[in-house]
Amino acid sequence: MTGAPPAIEAVDVSRTYQLDGVSVEALRGVSLVVQPGDYVALVGPSGSGKSTLMHLLGGLDRPTGGRLVIGGRDVNALAPPEMATLRNETIGFVFQAFHLLPRTSAVENVALPLVYRGVSARQRRERAAAMLGRVGLGHRLDHRPNQMSGGEQQRVAIARALVTEPTVLLADEPTGNLDSVTGAAVLELLEQLNAESGVALVMVTHDQEVAARAQRRITMRDGVVVADSADPRSTHDRPPSVDHGRPATLVPAPSAEPRSASGSGPGHPSGGSGGAAGATGRLPREAESNPGTKPGGTA
């Protein structure tokens, strides 16, 4: 992975939300590189900043700090219309909630990104139909979203993400709204497309088995990358091969520690209620649990 330029490069990227005068640091200095053809699983507890990072990687949002280069272009230097064009040309999104246009046929949904590229109506339909064929929906061209199953809808969304032949496919919990069998099929499709077309796949998942199948795994916690199997330096004293134990969605085993690991080891910091949130040492959460809210602290 040395010759080709990276598809996406993030250097010390941060994203702070202002919420009623309070700053929420969703990302606190994330650095990573997505290479063409990568298959990355992005894991981490809820609220760790996975979706925030995906939005940044896809050019849907801008970092409040750091440098982010997508398809060779520094997003800090891009105006909103240029960002839109960048998304159109280099990124494909797959969302947990599908986000298909209602009252619009599958083929027209898939063709939508081509509309903003100025492709003629006939070519749009041809390319969209071909793409639907590739995701196994060649027989559902004129079905509307409400006439399709969840799995079919997500396949339409995948076809829409790939119809522009992007370099990176970003999928945020693509199977989150599907049952396990359907989810597995969708996942297989994504992996197959990644293998066949060489599109880089970055996928958020809560499923450890899925994460284990990925060529590379990035683990986040509290707005930072705590482990990246492609970048052993970021794993902080732990080899990437160590697994997370039981698949846990909300409270993963305390295997990965905060990046600033100076004072932390296996011993948990005191004062927290014992959960993963307390182990992070993040101020707001500690403050929440501080004044007299401990069990038995108040009558």
């Binding site: 896809g58 909103p80 219309p81 839109a84 064009t85 159109n88 986000h99 939508l112 903003y116």
Partner: peptide
């Protein structure tokens, strides 16, 4: 939002 995500400019 979806249209913007797939490349619609403002």
């Amino acid at each position: 939002g979806l249209r913007k995500a797939v490349g619609a400019r403002p």
